[in-house]
Design a protein around this nucleic acid. Structure first.
Lengths: 145, 145
DNA sequence: TGATAAAAGGACCCGTAAGTCCTTATATAA
DNA sequence: TTATATAAGGACTTACGGGTCCTTTTATCA
């Protein structure tokens, strides 16, 4: 499963995208409220995202977070990558250091298929595509819809 | 990904199965060495497994661990269940408390497919089936084969 | 230019998984 | 029956992800 901080990050980015489409630039408090995460922790996560240039931020009065050009086609994989690394896409499901097709663990094939499937999903889905589903009413971001 | 303790548990059980087929009953030290895990920690894990009756143990001289009748058809799911619970088969990949087909998160469909696929694997594969792959030379348990 | 509203950043705390150590219980063999 | 080899168990430590708090920086507005 994805780390909690990664989940917060994805939810936050989707929310920011939705607000950006409304020409708004949400701040930490609004974002934290919407994604149901602690304010201070959300701030840390947003800081990480901006530091890695996945997101833009504006300080001072009227400031907040917004995507800059090219940033919103960010894939979910990109978010996972900066939040928790991508070892979950490489590591053996059995925990073996040296597991490969020449020297497979007993779960190598099946696990590999599943893992690659997940990789395809997170590579093809983007903050943009997820946000669109919500805007079109085909998905929700929290319990309030 | 599976917890480290779950991975150790599965590897340990497979090794025990292989040794049992050779009419042997390995002890903690031998098991730990083979699965490349700390001895004391392996002991803890084996204790958990026997306490939950997934495995038999014999104390004292010449003692060790062995499957009793019916125990070796144990599914991988069964091991996961006692080692770390099964929340990973239920929780939303997006981290939403209330995500379901009526109120789906933007990843609900795709994530569900993957998660169910993983569930099918761990439900159908057993300690016995994994051990057999190794015995048949179609898989390895550690870097030495 | 000063007050204020925001993000950035550093230092710290907390809970849990991972891991260690020492003692106790129990079986076997001499 | 005693010494010994083993698993069981409890108490502890360590590492790390998750989370808080306080200060600093930077922008805007009056």
């Amino acid at each position: 499963m994805l780390a909690k901080s990664t989940q917060y990050a994805i939810r936050a980015l989707v929310f920011i995208q939705l607000r950006n489409w409304e020409k708004q630039r949400p701040g930490v408090e609004e974002i934290a409220r919407e994604i149901e995460a602690p304010v201070a922790y959300s701030a840390k996560i947003l800081q990480t995202l901006t530091r890695h240039r996945l997101l833009g931020s504006v300080k001072g009065r009227g400031g907040g977070f917004a995507f800059e050009e090219m940033q919103s086609e960010l894939s979910i994989y990109g978010v996972i990558h900066v939040m928790e690394g991508d070892s979950c896409f490489h590591n053996c499901g059995f925990g073996l250091k040296s597991c490969n097709s020449a020297n497979p663990c007993p779960l190598h094939e099946e696990y590999g298929v599943m893992r690659d499937g997940f990789f395809d999903i997170v590579k093809s889905e983007t903050i943009h595509s997820l946000s669109k589903k919500i805007q079109d009413g085909n998905a929700v971001l929290n319990r309030f819809g």
